[in-house]
Computed example of a mutant assay.
Amino acid sequence: MNNHHAALWSASLPPTGERPYRITHHQRTKQRVNRQEPQERQQRQQQQEQQQLQWERLHHLEKWTWEEELDGGGNAPFIRCPPPLNLIEEEDKTTDDMETFEEDSLNIIFGKKQIVAVRVVMSVPDNVSAVRTAVVVTHGTGGDVNLKRLVSLARVLASNGLLCLRFTCKGLNLVYRVKAYNAVLEHLKYLKKFTIRQIFFVGRSLGARAASALARQLSVRPEDAVAGLVCLSFPLHPPGQTHGHRQRSEDLRGLPTEVPVLFLSGTADNMCEKILLEDVVKEMRCPTTVRWVEGGNHGLIVKGRTEESVQDELNAHVLSWILERIA
């Protein structure tokens, strides 16, 4: 990041004393990304994921856990966010099928009793002055900011003029996830370089539960309500335990009419039985759209289809749904 960019970034932030958090490890890279990600980038991303896994094993961190332990009771294990991985700068290639945008990387640190580090990557469209809509995206239980599906979605959104923040929070308790989501949202509101009028939440699995919980909390004040919520593979119940769907759908059923919701789930998802989600949708007060990925499991993997074709379908659904609501 050169001095000019650093000055612009610093000017966009409020004085430190006005922020309920602090920021570390800020980086910026300008990327020119092909919609069909090159094989070389995928290999580098796999290397990053292996490095992170090795770091977690070295520090005896438990990356995966069952969803049924994460209902916000306060007893689920808490994991600090690993140090941010170095961003890989893309080669400056210029072809007609590529879109240019910038990505900023930073850590948001908040909390009193337990300090939480949340890694954020912000995909910024080239035309900053035209940005009016922001999308905040987060992962599920075992993912992070580098989750391939969310990286792809974020870059499609940024390529179409939407500011996108995706973040990692390794807290495996729903309460911590909601707090982390809110911290990222507060940071977004403090950014003076953008004129944001609508904010959408996108969450995958446990991230969708956190997004719906925060969306419901914010809806108490109409001026704070989000413009919409996208739930990717909403974990309506633990595997084989469908009786848990009432508790997990409480925030969804509590959303007001002003917060539309898009569900994207697989018909073979063992954590979201189709008939149960359809019943929940009937009880919801807000406008809802449900898109089923035929044969998709909880990870939205479909036997007989390439991962890229499924991802293109998901990206198209999310992008068109958001654009329809900001038109």
Rank of each mutant, 00 (worst) to 15 (best):
M1F: 05
N2R: 14
H4C: 11
H5M: 10
W9Y: 13
S12F: 05
R28C: 04
V33Y: 12
N34V: 02
R35Y: 12
Q36T: 15
P38V: 10
E40P: 03
Q43W: 06
R44L: 04
Q45P: 01
Q48A: 12
Q54S: 07
H59I: 07
L61S: 02
W64I: 01
E69R: 00
D71W: 09
G74F: 00
G74K: 06
P84T: 07
N86P: 13
I88V: 12
E89N: 11
E91F: 11
D92A: 13
M98V: 09
E102L: 02
D104P: 07
G111P: 08
K112T: 10
Q114W: 02
V118Y: 08
V121L: 00
V121R: 00
M122K: 08
D126H: 04
V128P: 01
A134C: 08
G142D: 14
G143A: 14
D144S: 10
V145R: 03
S152A: 09
L153G: 10
L153H: 03
R155H: 03
L157Y: 08
A158L: 04
S159T: 08
N160H: 00
N160S: 08
L163F: 01
R166E: 09
R166T: 05
F167C: 01
C169K: 03
K170E: 06
N173P: 08
L174Q: 03
V175P: 03
R177P: 00
Y181F: 05
A183P: 08
H187M: 10
K189E: 10
Y190D: 09
L191Q: 12
K192I: 04
I199H: 00
V202N: 03
R204I: 09
L206C: 14
L206S: 07
L206I: 06
A211H: 05
S212C: 12
A215Y: 06
A215Q: 01
V226M: 02
Q247A: 13
D251L: 02
G254N: 05
P256L: 10
T257Y: 10
E258P: 06
P260A: 10
V261Y: 00
L264Q: 12
E273G: 14
L277F: 00
E278I: 09
V281C: 00
E283K: 09
T289F: 09
V293D: 04
H298T: 14
I301L: 05
G304V: 06
R305C: 01
Q311V: 08
D312M: 09
L314I: 15
H317E: 15
S320N: 13
